[in-house]
Design a binder for these strands. Structure first.
Length: 281
DNA sequence: ACCACTACCTGAAGGC
DNA sequence: TGCCTTCAGGTAGTGG
């Protein structure tokens, strides 16, 4: 489930291998992912140098020497596999089921986009007009950036009758949280996922803003520490074991000091929410 | 403007 | 063993 920390981990893993390299060829195994590939997709990428690999929310953005940017979203099950060039290596990496796009770089490196469920997507647009892109233009601020703070959070939640869990998943308000880190942030801030977004006190909103930042920072740090292992273990980037405090722990004891509660699992707008009834209010 | 809900997609897991 | 149902979840789109 790639959320902001996983996408950032993928970005950091790919950066040294792709930045500055030329994409020699592109293999596309189907006409679309979530949406059709744009017109002339391969032609517009082949022969271009990757100047920079950036991330915005859950999107990976590769600036090309052509003045265009390649946008990639991993959806729910998308992976990017990195196959570095090996001395004496002749055969290509064996194709796996659901390998949809393969980038071959000028040093022999292969980057493969594999996505069983095809909720992922790719697009190309003029870098200069990035702010107009239909997928990016409505994104809220990066929660780990300076423009996201208690003051902003308080303003954007004001008057909203939705639950705070639902608001945290709204990418127009905050861009990058998914189901897992929304649960984790609420647990860390000791706020009930069922609380109405517009009715949370300033003090608690401050706690939440801080919790969001620290939960994401910890996950990115954890990703970074496991990245090295993954690079030696066959190139899979972005999926790493991480111990969560609430997510996936239904029936288990709450991990907060002095709390005797048990993690509950409820459904909110069709999504599982994990929380402790005792300490999250 | 705001909000609830669904479709999209496949693989894994559980029930019978 | 095998068929069926349910669940996982990011996000665009629809309709109230």
């Amino acid at each position: 489930m790639p959320e902001l920390p996983e996408v950032e981990t993928v970005r950091r893993g790919l950066c040294p291998a792709v930045e500055g390299r030329v994409v020699e060829s592109l293999t596309i195994n189907r006409p679309d992912l979530r949406w059709p590939f744009p017109e002339g997709f391969a032609r517009r990428i082949e022969g271009r140098r990757v100047l920079r690999l950036r991330r915005s929310a859950k999107y990976l953005l590769a600036d090309l020497s052509s003045g265009e940017t390649l946008l990639m979203h991993l959806g729910m099950s998308g992976r990017l596999l990195l196959h570095p060039p090996l001395p004496g290596k002749i055969v290509e990496a064996p194709a796996q089921k659901h390998d949809h796009v393969k980038f071959k770089l000028d040093d022999g490196t292969e980057v493969v986009f594999n996505d069983p469920r095809r909720f992922g997507s790719m697009d190309l647009y003029s870098t200069a007009s990035e702010s107009q892109h239909w997928l990016l233009r409505n994104l809220g601020p990066e929660p780990i950036g300076n423009s996201f703070n208690a003051c902003y959070l308080s303003e954007c939640l004001a008057g909203r009758r939705v639950t705070i869990k639902s608001a945290l998943l709204d990418q127009r308000l905050i861009a990058g949280l998914g189901n897992i880190y929304a649960c984790e942030a609420l647990w860390a801030a000791r706020i009930s996922p069922a609380a109405r977004a517009g009715r949370i006190s300033t003090l608690r909103i401050e706690r939440l803003a801080t919790a969001i930042k620290s939960v994401l920072a910890e996950a990115i740090a954890a990703g970074g520490s496991t990245l090295r292992d993954f690079r030696h273990a066959g190139g899979e980037l972005g999926y790493f074991q991480h111990r969560f405090k609430a997510y996936g722990r239904q029936g288990e004891a709450c991990m907060r000091d002095q709390c005797s509660g048990v993690i509950d699992r409820i459904s909110q707008s069709g999504r599982s929410t994990f929380y402790c009834r005792r300490c999250q209010r």
